[in-house]
């Protein structure tokens, strides 16, 4: 493979990996606090994509406003999912909340089929994001980049930096870290645990929505089941990176993005197995290091 092709694939992998990472963060944060796999998370991603589609293409709003509406709408949905499906089950056995999560996921997918119809819809990308930039250099050869390809990883990394700042430098972040170790003691410190959990869902959902929006720009269509596979893969990324760890989720997402893109780049005949690589990666990490790359401890994983 020529160097310029490699750079092309590298940037592509960076973008895909960053999106997996953004979604994975929502899984890992909720799991870190509640020991719950929020199966509805992939569907919040899908809703984010739909909301931006309706705002910008149906209602012709500018992209900036559309993105804000989509993130706000999906965040609200994430909060409702927690309030309705998970909070009543806080003191129930963990398996009940897990089943509730699966139920919510099916509900959101099928509700979307009813409301949005099952037909995939095309997303019209803003032209300035797609306008190719040619970079020529004697050592590289020619590289074609579109602004979107660079924007996705840059925004993702900035957001993750901001999130790490919230978790490690602010009071609600301190409460989040504390809840993930010991809920009862955290309450004794005067923390309203339900409010911090809601904040966690809000942050996770906003990130999923953002990922959904960027996904819809990269692969320009939306449909009700579009969240399932990215959701699964992001969950694998979270496990790979060490579930509960935010940097781990990003690293896991990037690793997955690179495995997927590079294996097809180097072995084009394997492209039919694209979706299988994630699961192979999952099996390998569970065999070799079940806590994931950055995971510190292993509690019941389902």
């Amino acid at each position: 493979m020529s160097l310029n092709m490699f750079v092309q694939h590298f940037i592509n992998a960076l973008g895909l990996g960053a999106l997996y990472g953004l979604i994975a963060i929502g899984y890992t944060m909720v799991y870190g606090i509640l020991r719950l796999i929020n199966f509805a998370h992939g569907d919040i991603f899908m809703l984010g994509a739909y909301f931006v589609f309706f705002a910008t293409i149906q209602f012709k709003l500018p992209w900036g406003i559309g993105v804000a509406i989509a993130i706000a709408g999906a965040t609200l949905c994430g909060l409702l999912v927690d309030r309705i499906a998970y909070r009543p089950l806080r003191s129930a056995p963990r398996i009940s909340a897990l089943i509730s999560a699966i139920g919510v996921s099916f509900f959101l997918e099928n509700l979307s089929v009813v409301v949005f119809t099952g037909m995939p819809r095309a997303v019209v990308q803003p032209p300035w994001l797609m306008h190719p930039i040619l970079i020529k250099s004697p050592s590289f050869g020619e590289i074609r980049l579109i602004p979107l390809g660079l924007m996705v990883p840059v925004i993702s990394f900035l957001i993750v930096g901001g999130l790490l700042w919230i978790v490690h430098r602010t009071k609600p972040g301190l409460a989040m870290r504390s809840i993930s170790y010991d809920i009862e003691t955290t309450r004794l410190m005067g923390v309203s645990v339900d409010r911090i959990i809601a904040l966690t869902f809000a942050l996770g959902s906003a990130l999923a929505a953002l990922a959904g929006i960027m996904w819809a720009l990269r692969y320009p269509r939306v449909e009700p089941f579009m969240g399932i596979f990215p959701g699964f893969k992001a969950f694998i990324a979270a496990v790979f990176g060490g579930i509960g760890s935010i940097p781990g989720a990003m690293i896991g997402g990037l690793a997955l993005g690179f495995v997927e893109i590079m294996s097809i780049a180097f072995f084009p005949r394997l492209s039919g197995y694209k979706d299988a690589f994630a699961f192979v990666l999952l099996i390998v990490i569970l065999l070799v290091k079940p806590t994931g790359l950055m995971g510190e401890r292993l509690e019941e994983k389902i």
Binding site: L174, Y181, D182, L188
Partner: peptide, 29 residues
């Protein structure tokens, strides 16, 4: 806690992954 009652629980229940000072800051939540 807001009403002015604080409990130092049995078994200390220090948050192991937070620093000593973060534990104190949490107490002032």
């Amino acid at each position: 806690v807001k009403m002015g009652i604080a409990l130092s629980p049995e078994g200390r229940r220090i948050l192991p992954q937070l620093t000593a000072e973060e534990n104190l800051r949490l107490g002032a939540y």
